[in-house]
Nucleic acid binder design. Structure first.
Lengths: 400, 400
DNA sequence: CTGTTAGCGCTTTCAT
DNA sequence: ATGAAAGCGCTAACAG
């Protein structure tokens, strides 16, 4: 525990005086070494060494130069999700790769979900922003737009003036749903959170359309909206599973989800089930508060048991799908014999588990977001849509 | 792809003029709202809104105030390891938690392993540094010390003037080794990299003591050095396993490892084997270039097969141990029937796998490092040493 | 190749 | 409650 002795910083002026040259010469010695004679540079370096000058003050330099060398990253979650959520991590690894390539630091803005988040964004000394999936009503988006800095949003929400990168989640969900729901009688979706209240709500009964954000709003925000959304059946059922965890429920309206990714995937799964001739209210939807196998295991156990046990589960991530497999194993069930299952992302664990899934690279998407924000797009970055494809594996083989 | 239109930033001066007040009044309106009448503040806010003023320029503010609001994190690895290496992620989640608590941004300094890393550190606009395990000869450490900013190093190297946080890796390895090596005839260690050359070396034959950093140097750097280190036997054997992967080899000298954590753990495993009456050169050491189960699986397959198949594997992380289990499963072997196995960290996956391991919380250690660097130590942070304990599970039950 | 001038945008004194 | 002056530490732009 030493290191806390913040000794005063030596300034360039002091070095200049000690070396017997002007401040500009010192500045050049550091910033433009070739503009200075070897001799002078040596003199400067020597004086700097002697005085313990650590080089130009980064803050002063960036104020003068008008750039910080930092790429800001804002999450629609608590800062720790950057390292806790496997999807966010993969995405950020891509961002980090691009940062490293360009010698830019990666600054994670300390959001916590509280009202101060807006200030944290405003106070971030960065040259550009990358935003990882947040809700349509997150005020942080406006704060970012207000800075006037280049910014790329991944997943959502879309906003004028901000670049946007996302796969066609609805189409992909429709593809996955078509596979996993085929031949099913009691389908279910294992979903990401619908909105930012993810961790604080435990509801009983059928969820009523919320006041502010709602049906038509959601539909208006995105292209491809089908409108309506199934009515909520009287049989809707919700169980308590612990703080922050909503239990399985029937008939959630996709349009009420303020996370665009969740909304689009719910829509896609609804599309798929409709195409098979089903009705959306027949689909049970379990909402996880986080993207973790552990939590999914709890919810999946609910889905897979009881008189109305599901026989098809479409999960919004491989992590959730793997949690489902763990629950199944505990219950003595197996896919595809007892139920079909699909995941999302095609992570390393998907193939060994025989999991049907949507393949996409969050890492590439992160890199792409970073490149867009930094103004260094690669050739392929032109297209707005991002590549994905359905990978069929054993977890949905039943009907074949 | 909009967002690239970096409109010029509105300044406080312009807002002042528009609001018909002085610059100071605007500054107060933002930084010290109570020092300004409600009326004036409203006037200022209105003008700001109208002009699109995003609030005080963070860089200018921090230059004036003398603090940035950023905690810098430096890895002894490529920047992407922050999100790719599970250990680093757990550590950084702890750092992130503390940052969020204090409203500080977390700035990952873009190191790549190249010579420019030093400059990246010098140019980082931060108030303090946290360093995640690097090698004794990493020049970045000097650069950090030169800034004069508070800094905490996790794992190593120790350095005067920088705070230091680490568990007693040697003692812990001795404890794990005592457990996993008990009754073994052909022990092995599955190790982290020895030095920064981790990914570039594929060697044949017995490794000669390297020129610069070496035996006595390593011993001198740490307390508890036992000196000597076993001679390298003629039978030393190295196999090629692909780029960046050293194959298993006998008789690596712990003192040659420039990563302090690796060195201390090797020493501890040597201690354990000696206590049982063994000779260090009898212990095979497989060095992984990264902390990944995938790579461990490859190396472990080597260790567990052939005429001299090992019957005890001490791994330096749970990830490496789980890779070993995967290799074993593929080979039709199981622990503890065919070999004993120990991991490190007691991650979530350890208990389900029945893995004997060293329990410690990298997350807590990350939080602790951040608190120390930021000058907000918690009560328990006083002790230099960090808590750990041996968790005995089935993977070493054979002899009991 | 080196130096002079000006000012990046803000906030800390210290008045009024 | 508001304002004027000064300058945080540095570098672009221009001389010489």
């Amino acid at each position: 525990m030493s290191g806390r002795t913040a000794r005063r910083r030596v300034t360039m002026t002091e070095v200049a005086r000690a070396a017997g040259v002007s401040v500009m010469t010192v500045s050049y010695a550091y910033g433009r070494p070739d503009r200075v004679s070897d001799e002078t540079r040596a003199k400067v370096r020597e004086a700097a060494e002697r005085l313990g000058y650590p080089g130009p003050h980064p803050g002063a330099r960036s104020l003068r130069r008008g750039r910080t060398g930092n790429l800001g990253v804002v999450l629609g979650e608590h800062l720790t999700y950057a390292f806790d959520d496997p999807q966010a991590s993969r995405f950020l690894a891509g961002v980090a790769q691009v940062c490293a390539d360009h010698g830019m630091a990666l600054t994670l803005v300390p959001v916590t979900g509280g009202p101060a988040d807006v200030d944290r964004v405003t106070e971030a000394a960065v040259d550009a922003f990358v935003v990882w999936t947040t809700a349509d009503d997150d005020p942080v988006i406006d704060a970012i737009a207000a800075t006037g800095l280049p910014a790329t949003v991944h997943g959502g929400p879309r906003r004028d003036g901000l670049a946007f990168v996302a796969a066609d989640d609805r189409a992909a969900a429709r593809a996955a749903g078509g596979e996993v729901f085929a031949g099913a009688r009691r389908p279910a979706v294992l979903s990401f959170p619908l909105d930012r209240a993810r961790v604080s709500t435990v509801t009983f009964g059928a969820p009523a359309p919320r006041p502010g954000a709602s049906d038509s709003a959601g539909a208006a925000r995105d292209e491809n909206a089908t409108g309506s959304g199934g009515a909520i059946p009287k049989s809707a059922r919700l169980s308590v599973l612990g703080a922050g965890v909503r239990g399985p429920v029937s008939g959630i309206d996709p349009e009420t989800a303020t996370f665009r990714v969740t909304r689009q995937r719910l829509r896609g799964f609804r599309d798929a089930w409709s195409e098979i001739g089903g009705d959306w209210p027949e689909v049970r939807v379990a909402v996880c508060s986080t993207n973790s196998a552990r939590e999914a295991e709890e919810l999946a156990a609910e889905l897979l048991t009881g008189p109305h046990a599901c026989d098809a589960v479409a999960a919004m991530s491989d992590e959730l799908a793997l949690g489902t497999l763990r629950a199944a194993a505990r219950l003595g069930l197996a896919a595809p014999a007892d139920f079909t299952l699909s995941g999302w992302d095609d992570t390393d664990a998907a193939a060994p588990a025989g999991l049907t899934t949507i393949a996409q690279s969050l890492r590439d998407q992160g890199a792409r977001c970073a490149r867009a924000a930094l103004g260094h797009p690669a050739p392929g970055d032109r297209d707005t849509e991002v590549a994905w494809h359905l990978v069929r594996r054993d977890s949905t083989r039943r009907r074949r």
